[in-house]
Amino acid sequence: MADPMRIRAQAKDNNAIVRVLMNHEMESGQRKDGDGKIIPAWHIQDVSASLNGKVVMTAEWGPGVSKNPFLQFTIKGAKAGDKVAITWKDNHGDSRTDEATIS
């Protein structure tokens, strides 16, 4: 099981700025190991964010996103006390969901 994400969501002017740090290797599929064999790609493919259970943002990522990815986005009309949940799914089928409360 993957390590938890760090999520910070702050309300500002009727919007909420959400910052997420995910824990993931994000192997690019370009690197080679000691024997010269290519290490297969292992990266987050799908990211989705929901506000109080309703999906508000989805994204698709390739292997070009950095290791332990950072993501920042803004939800309109969100206020303090609302719950933001972030889910990612990688190309091995592993997934993780974490939730935070907007402050």
Binding site: E60, P63, S66, L71, Q72, K76
Partner: peptide, 22 residues
Amino acid sequence: NALIAMFNVNPEVDANFATRAK
């Protein structure tokens, strides 16, 4: 591979995203 990331823009979010790339 040129494409790093794709974000779907819904009415509920600003078309304003930040991330880190290799």
